[in-house]
Simulated assay, not measured.
Amino acid sequence: MGRGRVELKRIENKINRQVTFSKRRNGLLKKAYELSVLCDAEVALIIFSSRGKLYEFGSAGMNRTLERYQRCCYTPQDANAADRETQSWYQEVSRLKSKYESLQRAQRHLLGEDLGPLSVKELQNLEKQLEGALSAARQRKTQIMMEEMEELRRKERHLGDINKQLKNKLEAEGQGSFRAIQASWDSTALVGNTFSAQSSQSNTMDCEPTLQIGYHHYVPPEGATIARSVAGEGNFIQGWVL
């Protein structure tokens, strides 16, 4: 009994699809090899799986077969178009190379290098360029400095406002503290005055009159001279004072 005809459509089952791909791929690669050997043909086979994996076979080398394919497929018109495109690309590369060398030379001139071959007119143009660049740099510098000064002024005003607020707050708190301290001082002074009055009254009451009989012993001060007697009998110290 022969195998039934297989309907050509996408296999929905993923596993069956992968198994079928592996079997048919191997069979196709085998057929390509057999064709190249049996018929002495140059065969190239390229297969990409659904996951992007590459499978290839080239009896004479893949690159060689592809180059041969390109030579066979291109017509003379296409070849002429390719030559014209290649020529245009060469011209574009040459133009860009010349421009690059010119820019490098101009940069060296601006840096003060390789000025020997320049003429007077070229040097004058270079001088004007440098003066213009210097003027633009100075203007930009001035602009940046003005912006920084404005920013510093803004910060100064902000700090001044904060300082003023702190000063007012400190003055308000200081007045309250001063009033409290003054009240404390007044109460302390009142208590001290009362204590002094009581002490003076106590001292007055403690004092009593005393009676002294006789005379006080006289002690002469330092540097005082000792009196001599008129009769010349000898020196003596006055023992009492009237």
Rank of each mutant, 00 (worst) to 15 (best):
S200H: 11
F178S: 09
F21D: 01
M149N: 12
V241F: 14
R51Q: 15
K23E: 06
V191M: 11
R179D: 11
G132F: 07
R5E: 14
G116V: 04
G232E: 01
D186S: 12
V241E: 15
E92K: 08
S202I: 09
E42H: 06
T204P: 00
E42N: 15
F178R: 07
K23P: 01
V230K: 08
E122G: 01
K14A: 14
R25G: 01
W185A: 12
A41Y: 03
L170W: 06
L38G: 09
Q201G: 13
C207E: 13
R157M: 07
Q198W: 05
A137K: 13
M145E: 15
E171S: 10
R51Y: 13
N193L: 14
R179Q: 13
A227S: 09
F21N: 02
L134E: 10
A224Q: 07
K23H: 05
E171R: 05
L123W: 00
I181K: 11
K23W: 02
V230S: 13
I144G: 05
H109S: 00
L28Y: 00
E92M: 10
T65W: 01
E171V: 08
A137W: 10
V6A: 13
L115M: 03
L96R: 04
C39G: 06
L115Q: 02
E127A: 12
I237N: 09
S199Y: 10
S135A: 14
Y215I: 01
T75E: 04
Y218F: 14
K9Y: 04
V37R: 04
Y33T: 03
V93L: 10
K128Q: 15
N235S: 10
A41I: 04
P221Y: 07
D78Q: 15
G176T: 15
L152S: 07
I144N: 13
E67T: 06
Y215P: 01
